[in-house]
Amino acid sequence: MIRPLAAAIAMLATPVAAQVTIQGDTTTIQLGNAPTVEAETREAVSIAPQAVMRGLDKLAGASEDIVLTAGDPITYGPLTITMRECRYPQGNPSGDAYVGLLVVDRNLGGPVFDGWMIASSPALNAMDHPRYDVWAIRCKLDDRTPSVVAGESSPLPLMRPEGLGGN
């Protein structure tokens, strides 16, 4: 009686591999023996020429905003970061950014990240590096787009409304 119960518990604890297939506008997800799920995943997107990323040196505790231009590699510590594409919802440039990146560590001699980062969910597909973190902030359309790097994110300091505490 105990053996079948232990086998059932072991089966429940065993992770099941998911298989994701993307064809055209349809994504098919198959999880073990579960029914296949198909979803329309394409929403209208636009492509920006630049992306704003944030880099963190975990050892020094210093963060820095990095502006990437499609196809132009930049150096951040021992990392060479190349943006392939920055996508955002059509008509909403301040919306969620999807950034296609290749990150190569010259000390390790190979890529440490090759894929898409999503600004609203940085942990969904994060770069795994012992010292550096890099994640997407937003797409940048042109030089007139506000940039945290240039300190242009707000033309005026934020003011506390009158009567809400403080001096």
Rank of each mutant, 00 (worst) to 15 (best):
D143Y: 04
T145D: 14
P111H: 06
L79S: 05
P130S: 09
G55P: 00
G61D: 05
P73K: 01
A10R: 12
S94F: 10
S94M: 13
R131F: 01
Y88W: 09
G55I: 02
M127H: 05
S153K: 01
R160K: 15
A10Q: 10
G61P: 03
A119F: 03
G77S: 08
A39F: 05
I9K: 04
R54G: 04
L68V: 01
V16K: 14
R87C: 01
D143N: 12
F113N: 06
P15D: 13
A60L: 14
T75I: 13
Y88T: 04
G55N: 08
I66P: 02
I118K: 14
P157H: 00
G165H: 12
I9C: 09
T14L: 12
L156I: 06
P73H: 02
G165P: 07
W135E: 09
E64N: 07
P130R: 10
T14Y: 08
D143G: 15
A34R: 13
K58S: 05
N107D: 11
S154C: 12
R42V: 14
T21R: 10
L102N: 15
V104K: 12
D25H: 11
T26H: 06
S120K: 12
T75V: 10
D72I: 15
Q19T: 10
W135M: 11
L56H: 10
R106E: 10
R87G: 00
N92M: 14
V52S: 00
A150C: 03
Q19R: 14
Q30K: 12
T80L: 08
G32E: 03
G166V: 11
Q19A: 11
N107T: 13
S121M: 13
G91R: 00
L156G: 02
L5M: 09
T69C: 00
S120F: 07
G151M: 00
I137D: 08
A8K: 13
P93E: 11
G24H: 01
I74M: 11
W135F: 15
D65A: 02
A119L: 08
D72F: 08
T82E: 11
L68T: 00
L101S: 06
P35S: 15
L101V: 02
E162R: 10
D57R: 04
R138Y: 04
G109I: 02
V37H: 02
M117A: 05
A18Y: 05
L164S: 11
A60W: 02
Y98D: 06
R87F: 03
R54K: 15
T21G: 06
P161K: 11
G95V: 08
G91M: 09
I9S: 07
M117G: 03
P15W: 13
P122K: 07
L156V: 10
G61V: 06
Q19G: 07
R3F: 12
I81C: 06
G55H: 14
L108G: 04
Y98F: 12
P78E: 12
G77P: 13
V52K: 02
P157G: 05
N125Q: 07
Y88S: 05
P146V: 05
S153N: 06
V45L: 14
R84K: 13
Q23N: 15
Q90K: 14
Y132V: 13
L31D: 04
L59S: 02
Q50L: 07
P4E: 01
G151W: 00
T75C: 03
S153L: 08
L31I: 15
N92C: 04
